[in-house]
């Protein structure tokens, strides 16, 4: 009897140790980021690396905008990400509603296309897309490179396939009888959509919006080529702290923390729905 109890206790201890290890693997890099953001450049460059700063300083946060105009990049990222979010929500809602509620010719084909576009490499589109931007500018005089609308358009189209699929799954979970009932009661289809379905689908729509916001906030590949000095996003701006002349690791870590905070807040508020969307996107595909 005693022996079995011992085994059980040991099992429990091992189990919790494993969980602890898992959490440590996740958190230790963040710890390093956090502690380094409070170290002076002198300490980072001149002394042995330490987990706890010798001299606690908030200089990095004070001077975060000094070498790199990171606040401008923040503004650019915010404009582009919000634009993407709003555009994606509107277009994805319409398309997802169509796929979820109508049976029309080409519906399955369209859904499969949505899945398959997610599989293609971004680099495949980038070069012709770049040439296309130049061509549009030369023939129509409409500047697309290094503009907010160019980036927003690009990112909306990027986030659309996944957003539509995610929202379709959400709308499918709202029973179809609800809008049929509303239409019997004299609602037109448009009214039924805006008055009844959209309020019910609010969490799903919010999740889609946040997904597209995060996507636009994090994207690197297209931003490298298509943004310039006026529209550089924060993801690219972070790289500028390390130059040939000087390496401001402390400021960079401070900027990294500032960049992550908005994403963290947005994700935590909608965690459940985004996670559900991710899971169903991968398992139903």
């Amino acid at each position: 009897m005693m022996k079995r109890k011992h085994v059980k206790i040991i099992q429990q201890v091992l189990f919790y140790l494993a969980v602890l290890l898992l959490v440590a693997v996740v958190l230790v890099p963040y710890l390093w980021m956090f502690s380094s953001s409070f170290k002076s450049t002198l300490e980072i460059q001149g002394m042995e690396p330490r987990w706890i700063p010798h001299n606690f300083t908030i200089e990095n946060y004070r001077l975060v905008n000094e070498i790199v105009p990171i606040f401008d990049y923040f503004k650019n990222s915010l404009i582009i990400s919000f634009g993407t979010m709003i555009g994606t929500i509107i277009l994805a809602t319409f398309a997802a509603y169509a796929i979820s509620r109508f049976r029309f010719r080409g519906r399955n084909f369209y859904t499969v296309t949505l899945f398959s576009t997610q599989m293609l490499p971004g680099i495949l589109f980038l070069i012709p897309y770049f040439v296309m931007f130049i061509w549009v500018q030369r023939t129509f005089g409409l500047q697309m490179r290094n503009t907010y609308h160019g980036m927003i358009f690009t990112y909306i189209s990027f986030s659309l396939p996944f957003a539509i699929l995610m929202l379709r799954n959400y709308l499918d979970s709202i029973p179809q009888e609800i809008d049929e009932q509303a239409m019997i009661d004299g609602c037109s289809r448009v009214r039924a959509l805006f008055r009844i379905i959209l309020p019910l689908a609010k969490p799903g729509i919010a999740a889609v919006g946040i997904y597209s916001f995060i996507m636009a906030w994090n994207e690197i590949l297209f931003a490298t080529i298509l943004t310039g000095t006026q529209t550089k996003t924060v993801a690219l701006g972070l790289l500028q702290y390390i130059g040939a002349q000087q390496s401001r690791w402390g400021s960079m870590m401070a900027a990294c923390i500032l960049t992550t905070i908005p994403i963290l807040i947005l994700f935590t508020t909608m965690q459940k729905h985004i996670v559900e969307g991710l899971v169903s996107g991968a398992t139903k595909g």
Binding site: P29, I214, I220, A235, L238, M253, T259, T260, I263
Partner: peptide, 11 residues
């Protein structure tokens, strides 16, 4: 969920 740029700069 950490942005790519942040995570890889950290590493």
């Amino acid at each position: 969920i950490t942005p790519d740029s942040v995570a890889y700069n950290l590493w």
